[in-house]
């Protein structure tokens, strides 16, 4: 059994936060460039041009890609032949506080959603999930999620009879309803299956995939292609100002579920999909 100290998890989180905040993922950059080359709307091209300039400035000057440097979602993937020792939540929060101060990121966490909306001042707590994986590796995945794109997201418990058509209708409705304010072109993460509480995580995890890489399964990949075409037919376009590119990609992740259930979640990612993954140790 391989042993990893929680301090090393903190180190990985620190590195991942700063990278995700200031440099656009190469796959996201390539997707934006491809969209700029295809886009037929003048305004759409102007918006995409600004987003490409923005990525260059952020990376050259080490400044955040977006003023909303988000909440921090950490997915700690632990191999079944590895063991992480120590106070992981405390190390993660300490790393987040340090990274937000040193990289001059905005702190955007309210102490309590209902009873105390004051800012915690250091962007903690992070939102931490732990998942098991095969092997002995330990990986930290970090996503900085802005309020605008997360607010545009939705979960619905469909009936099994609603099938693929029902899933498609819900995804397109959700994008049509909210994508204009969610910094399009968006990346649409779709979760189908699992349970009410887990389907949102499935959709969010789909945003970690390289932008536009199809799902491994052919049926799912075909659904992704169909959904991308339907979403882009909405005409919302870059910045929501009209155009061909409402979404850069639709990523669908599926899972087992109860025989009575068809849970669906749509987690909208903005054009920057700010994630970074770091191997620990």
């Amino acid at each position: 059994m391989r042993t990893v100290d929680s301090h090393a998890v903190g180190e990985a989180v620190r590195e991942a936060v700063v990278r995700a905040a200031t440099s656009l993922r190469p796959d996201a950059l390539a997707a934006l460039e491809a969209a700029a080359a295809r886009e037929r709307s003048d305004r759409g091209r102007a918006v995409l041009g600004q987003l490409l300039d923005n990525a260059a400035i952020a990376s050259a000057d080490g400044v955040p890609l977006c003023q909303d440097t988000g909440y921090v979602w950490v997915l700690l993937e632990v191999g079944v032949e590895a063991c992480v020792c120590g106070d992981v939540p405390a190390e993660v929060d300490a790393a987040v506080a340090e990274a937000y101060a040193s990289a001059r990121l905005r702190t955007s966490i309210a102490r309590d959603a209902l009873t105390d909306r004051s800012n915690t001042g250091d962007n903690t707590p992070a939102f931490l999930d732990v998942a098991f994986a095969p092997g002995s590796g330990v990986t930290v995945h970090v996503m900085l999620k802005g309020g605008g794109s997360d607010n545009a997201s939705a979960v619905r418990m469909l009936a099994p009879g609603d099938g693929e058509e029902g899933v498609a209708r819900f995804v397109v409705e959700t994008v049509a309803h909210a994508a204009a304010g969610a910094c399009p072109p968006v990346v649409v993460g779709v979760g189908v299956g699992a349970t009410f509480d887990k389907v949102g995580g499935l959709a969010k995890k789909a945003l970690l995939r390289p932008v536009g890489r199809p799902a491994a399964d052919d049926l799912t990949a075909a659904l992704e292609e169909r959904l991308l075409a339907e979403v882009n037919a909405l005409g919302i376009g870059p910045g929501g100002l009209g155009g061909d590119t409402t979404a850069l990609a639709v990523h669908v992740a599926t899972a087992p579920c109860h025989i009575a259930a068809l849970p669906v979640a749509v987690n909208i990612g903005c054009s920057a999909v700010r994630t970074a993954s770091v191997e620990v140790g």
Binding site: V47, L51, A58, V63, L65, G181, C183
Partner: peptide, 13 residues
């Protein structure tokens, strides 16, 4: 006026 969401490093200049 609408500004471009996600272009904040550029807009800061």
């Amino acid at each position: 006026f609408a500004a471009v969401g996600g272009a904040a490093a550029l807009l800061a200049t």
